[in-house]
């Protein structure tokens, strides 16, 4: 399974957000790093087929995720930064079962599969819990279980750890490390992708580096620290 990006360009509200991004991602663990506003989240949505690029092509396994949403359901799952933007249903079991019925499972099959994933994570007792009442970390874990239940071959995560405390982050990271699917993790923090197979560095919507973590992350960290010592918050976009 590979994520193929060919000359991907995206404009949002007249602003160029991504410029000619090309990469063929076949490694199991991919990190995409960059600053706020570098286009990382847009790229995550392009990979998941939620945004159709206005230039170039984005495909997974040869299929266009933005055009063929049914194929996309089997191929790719996405976890947003804020779980409150992702959870659609009032109870845990409904939230997990929804994606499965979308994939064509019957109501009972979907419920059983949802229970199975809850049991796999040792959270069988969450079944009837109100999603609204979950803690932030619990919500993020629910989003992960929801996506995993659908068995996508690629999972895109957009800053999944922001706002989580250290123990919660470690627990979620532990769950992530045992996932079979290809993982594309978007982050501003180089620490979170240190053990990954390949790192893409985005800046100003362009791919500025692409390679193994040892080759990309030290330079990335150095650049971030250099900028951190300056005052580029002064610049207004647009």
């Amino acid at each position: 399974m590979s994520v193929d990006l060919r000359d991907v360009g995206v404009s949002l509200d007249g602003q160029r957000v991504l410029h000619a991004i090309s990469a063929s991602l076949t490694e199991p663990r991919i990190g995409i790093v960059g600053r706020n506003g570098s286009g990382k989240s847009t790229l995550a949505r392009v990979i998941a087929g939620l945004i159709e690029p206005d230039q170039g092509q984005a495909r997974i396994g040869g299929q266009d995720m933005a055009r063929d949403r049914r194929a996309a359901l089997a191929a790719v799952g996405i976890i947003f930064q804020n779980p409150d933007h992702q959870i659609i249903f009032p109870t845990v079991i409904e939230e997990i079962a929804f994606g499965l019925t979308q994939q064509g499972l019957g109501r009972d099959e979907a419920q059983n599969a949802a229970r199975a994933i809850l049991a796999r994570f040792g959270k069988a007792h969450w079944e009837a819990a109100a999603t609204y009442a979950l803690s932030q970390g619990q919500k993020q874990l629910l989003c992960l279980m929801t996506v995993l239940a659908m068995r996508p071959r690629t999972i895109v995560m957009d800053e999944p750890f922001s706002g989580l405390d250290i123990p919660t982050r470690m627990q979620i990271a532990r769950h992530l490390s045992c996932i079979d699917a290809q993982l594309v993790l978007i982050t501003h923090d180089p620490e979170q992708v240190r053990g990954f197979d390949r790192i893409l560095w985005l800046d100003g919507g362009r791919l500025v580096a692409d390679g193994p973590p040892d080759a990309v992350l030290p330079a990335f960290r150095q650049r971030m620290e250099d900028w951190g010592n300056g005052d580029d918050l002064a610049h207004l976009a647009g």
């Binding site: 049914r70 799952g77 947003f80 933007h85």
Partner: peptide
């Protein structure tokens, strides 16, 4: 703004796919 986000979340999980699955409900 929240509505936009939820619309995106729905789309990420296939949106309102009706016809083909209706018989299974």
């Amino acid at each position: 703004d929240d509505a936009d986000h939820v619309a995106e979340a729905l789309r990420a999980r296939g949106g309102i796919l009706n016809d083909r699955d209706a018989g299974k409900d």
